[in-house]
């Protein structure tokens, strides 16, 4: 198992390198000089040139990339042009907030997705199945920023039960695990959980249907297992695929939550990316995208390892 993990780590390295190149070049595809947004409109050409040299934008792209990568490897993602603070700390704070939100959302989504999926799969074509399927289709297809706004209107504006924006009462932008902060995470987490819930419910429903139709389920009953005993086997057979889907969904949520984080002003990566794009904050944008991409790579790795550990049929060689 250890050698399997090491081997997978090795294969991940070129992927990570490729990702870094894409990250670096993506932002250079965009038109406009990143410096133009922070320099005064009437800046002289000399000032502009001086700034370009100071930020290293005068060098050829491959050299810029090499220098950037070298720094990245040493934990230096540069300095945010807009705020002047280190990109790493900005991104780090945002990642933690996003990770918390995405984890809570995935957990909610996974729990209810599995619940609906198992119920629908076990009672195929019954009223329960149709109800659970309807909920999951709703989850996959409803625009989540719209759902977010509806939730805000109902639970914040009209009922006044929950705060509508931010991660905490002090506006510091750091979420802490206490009751007061918990109230802030409920609405965005529920909004976000609707997507993985739908996807997981539909996957689990199909999985359970498929597993129940297999011969070994009959054989399990034939050896005298109770329905609950059979259910445990179904769960273990469904787990590798369900967990893989959950891992990928967590990855999507980490990066794909710009809309939700913006609606709820949640100080996470989506919110940060949004700000970085509008402020043309190139180092921040690069850093944020890189970190998110690396998260995805790492998640895939973890999902792979967990799946291999759970399903003996996957080759370890």
């Amino acid at each position: 198992m250890l050698s399997f993990i090491l081997r997978r780590l090795l294969t991940v390295t070129p992927v990570a390198l490729g990702v870094s190149i894409v990250c670096f070049s993506l932002v250079h595809l965009a038109e406009g000089d990143p410096l133009s947004s922070i320099l005064p409109v009437d800046a002289t050409q000399e000032t502009i040139d001086a700034m370009r040299i100071a930020y290293g934008y005068d060098k050829p792209l491959p050299v810029q990339y090499a220098l950037w990568l070298w720094k990245v490897l040493h934990g230096d993602l540069g300095t945010s042009i807009a705020t002047g603070r280190p990109v790493l700390s900005e991104v780090g704070r945002a990642v933690v907030n996003s990770l918390i939100l995405a984890s809570v959302a995935t957990l909610i989504g996974f729990t209810f997705g599995c619940l609906f999926g198992f119920v629908a799969g076990y009672f195929r074509d019954s009223v329960l199945d149709r109800a659970a399927s309807a909920i999951s289709v709703f989850g996959v297809s409803v625009p989540h920023y719209w759902l977010g706004m509806v939730l805000v209107i109902v639970f914040s504006a009209q009922l006044g039960w929950l705060p509508s924006t931010g991660a905490g009462p002090d506006g510091s932008g750091n979420w802490k695990p206490d009751l007061e902060h918990l109230r802030y995470i409920i609405l965005p987490a529920i909004t976000m959980s609707v997507i993985p819930m739908g996807v997981i419910a539909r996957t689990v429903r199909a999985l359970v249907g498929d597993i129940l139709s297999q011969d070994f389920v009959g054989a399990l009953r034939a050896k005298g297992l109770s329905e609950f005993g059979v259910f445990k086997h179904v769960v273990k057979n469904a787990a590798p695929t369900a967990l893989a889907i959950m891992g990928l969904q967590l990855g999507y949520l980490l990066g794909g939550s710009i809309l939700i984080e913006t609606v709820f002003a949640w100080p996470g990566t989506g919110f940060l990316l949004n700000a970085a794009i509008f402020q043309r904050d190139l180092p921040l944008l690069q850093g944020a995208i890189l970190v998110l991409a690396m998260f995805f790579v790492a998640l895939n790795l973890i999902v792979d390892v967990v799946q291999t550990a759970l399903d003996p049929r996957i080759e370890r060689g």
Partner: peptide
């Protein structure tokens, strides 16, 4: 009463030893 099935590969749970 116990039963032996036709295709043991399908009649045994693949993810349990």
């Amino acid at each position: 009463v116990a039963m032996i099935f036709q295709e043991p590969l399908l009649a045994l749970d693949p993810v349990y030893t």
